[in-house]
Design a binder for these strands. Structure first.
Length: 558
RNA sequence: GUCCCAGUAGCUCAGCUGGAUAGAGCAACGGACUUCUAAUCCGUAGGUCAGGGGUUCGAAUCCCUUCUGGGACGCCA
């Protein structure tokens, strides 16, 4: 609805400019894209445009003069505009008929779960790859933030009209798997009483001791007789399966479901890596130096070139990653989004450069970098997990604060900011806790609707109510916020910024609580009650839709 | 040394593809429950947008520079 009004105003302005130019009121100019914004100050109208200031330079006229000429030629028939004012340096402010926001009520009731759904994605295919943690261990806070962020972003993009696929890249090849195998072998032999030290670079986590014990329970100790290569390979494959299953379940408990689990090893097995390297070589972006093969990343704006095949003949992680991302585009995705920890930022330019080298649009690959997460408890920073001695795991976090709180806290901040995660706050059931604050708003509305049922009454149909009785400021503010929801979805999708939805939810909940405290919904005034019942039902719908996008529940009782 | 991110109220953070008087939550202080859930609300106070320079009608936002914090710079991933 808001977007429609904006489009209408922009079109009217466009015509007005042309009209003013024809009449000689304005010097002919190139008209820039007309942006209609919502003024921060209510006193500046419902919508405004800075058009006149933008035109001032090319028209060589004072902005206010331009604004006046444009305003005089505005034909606003068919728009809800009541009056137009020129203010400040040359803003054109639009004041709408009071009650224009009532139109959002039937819209929300009718569209219900689809209110806020957009088509700006135009059905383009987008892939969001996130978490992709090494399957050699447990999920830590960085992975957790990535999970919440990636899943929410995927949901938002889907809601905005993209066809979205969630993917997990399994790093099941290369050095780390060799290393993993060696570590498992050591633990295995230790179980048999052999006194072998764990290699310096090995996996020291205690979880793999359990893994090895589990293996022995199932398959016995026959591997002790096997050759080292077989032993390591067998243990690594066994452990990988176990770890992956575990990761999958942990993420499932966190509300994350993937469309695809993509194996790095499959790129080696299928020859995709070799083919990709051949293609780069044919295009002249590969050269040999000190027995290794290098990719000319510097030709694509990076600081230095990068090794793709080591002097021992084994391709690097980067080589696999190029083949992987090429594979993504070959699968037909129009846009590919990766979510990485900020410690990988050095990898961004060469990754995008490699796609450019292969003939893809480097900007079709978008990489979101997340800064670190720091856990706090009792004002003290928490570094270690009590159980594993490693970093606190996602499972432990969910166990402690619950899934909803965890997910909200991870997406409430911009990925760019270091996240201070206050465990005490996330657990607290008070107004300090934004998750409860928001969910409580939803529960309160459900409570009102329950109350209604207990009285043997029902929620009125939209066609039965008179929306014009909703004249309180708190009501109009709520309606305006509800009308803004689709715009907010568009912004969150375009800017890839789920934290905007978190913020929107908090704002909407705040407006509702404020309304709730000053006005009763169910009163003796039947007409007013009916209108307010439908209003709060609209709030319920939007809260529930937005909560859903962040993977949070919308409780009916608290 | 080079590069990336951040620096906004006491604290945690929005706002950053330039717009009008810089916002929110928490903490502080003062109020509101015989009510559809007080897990709530209302009010007060709180600012050199790290410092300096520039670009222009207009800068928290863009450019340059200095400082502070975090991170990356491997034939690891």
């Amino acid at each position: 609805m808001v977007e429609q009004i904006k489009t209408g105003l922009a079109a009217a302005l466009q015509k007005a400019i042309a009209g003013a130019v024809d009449k000689g009121l304005i010097n002919p100019v190139e008209v820039p894209e007309i942006t209609i914004e919502v003024p921060r100050e209510k006193g500046h109208g419902d919508f405004a445009t800075n058009l006149a200031m933008q035109l001032a330079r090319s028209a060589k006229m004072a902005p206010r003069k331009i604004a006046e000429a444009v305003a005089e030629n505005l034909d606003l028939a068919g728009t809800p505009v009541e009056r137009v004012e020129i203010a400040g340096p040359g803003f054109i402010n639009f004041y709408l008929q009071p009650g224009w926001v009532y139109g959002v009520i039937p819209l929300i009731i009718e569209q219900d779960r689809n209110y806020g759904r957009l088509e700006i994605g135009e059905g383009q295919r987008v892939q969001v790859e996130f978490v992709s943690a090494n399957p050699t261990g447990l999920l830590h806070m960085g992975n957790a933030r990535g999970a919440a962020l990636g899943d929410s972003l995927a949901s938002i993009l889907d809601f905005a009209g993209y066809r979205v696929s969630r993917e997990y890249y399994i790093n099941d090849a290369g050095n780390q798997i060799e290393n993993f195998g060696r570590s498992l072998e050591v633990r295995f032999l230790q179980q048999l009483g052999q006194d072998i030290p764990m290699p310096e670079e090995g996996y020291h986590g205690e979880d793999i001791i359990d893994t090895v014990k589990g293996y022995i329970r199932k398959y016995g100790t026959g591997l002790a007789e096997a050759d080292a290569v077989t032993r390591r390979k067998t243990l690594a494959e066994y452990a990988l399966q176990e770890k992956l299953t575990h990761i999958r379940n942990t993420l499932l408990d966190f509300g994350v479901v993937y469309d695809e689990w993509f194996s790095e090893q499959s790129l080696h097995d299928s020859g995709a890596i070799q083919r990709t390297l051949d293609e780069l070589r044919e295009k002249g972006y590969i050269y040999e130096h000190e027995n290794a093969l290098w990719f000319k990343a510097t030709e694509f704006g990076d600081e230095k070139d990068e090794v793709v095949v080591r002097s021992n003949g084994i391709p690097t992680y980067f080589a696999a990653d190029i083949a992987y991302h090429k594979n993504k585009f070959e699968r037909g995705f129009d846009k590919v989004i990766d979510i990485w920890g900020a410690d990988h930022h050095g990898h961004v330019n060469r990754m995008k450069g490699s796609m450019e080298a292969l003939g893809y649009d480097r900007d079709a690959l978008q990489i979101i970098l997340m800064q670190l997460v720091r856990l706090y408890r009792g004002g003290e920073i928490v570094r270690m997990s009590k159980r594993t001695g490693q970093f606190v795991t996602l499972e432990e976090l969910v166990e402690e604060v619950g899934r909803d709180a965890a997910r909200y806290f991870f997406v409430m901040r911009s990925p760019d900011s270091h996240l201070e995660f206050d465990l005490d706050l996330a657990k607290s059931q008070t107004n300090d806790n934004p998750v409860f604050y928001i969910q409580y708003a939803h529960a309160r509305i459900c409570s009102i609707l329950r109350q209604l049922q207990e009285q043997g009454r029902r929620l009125p149909n939209v066609s039965e109510i008179n929306v014009n009785v909703l004249t309180e400021q708190a009501e109009l503010d709520l309606l305006r916020k509800l009308a803004d929801f689709p715009t907010e979805i568009a912004a969150a999708a375009e800017l890839m910024a789920p934290h905007r939805i978190a913020r929107y939810l908090h704002d909407l909940a705040g407006l509702f609580h404020s309304f709730y405290n000053s006005h009763r919904v169910i009163t003796d005034d039947e007409t007013l009650s009916q209108a307010r019942l439908v209003l709060v039902d609209c709030v319920r719908i939007v809260l529930r839709n937005a909560l859903g996008l962040l993977g949070l529940t919308a409780p009916e009782k608290m």
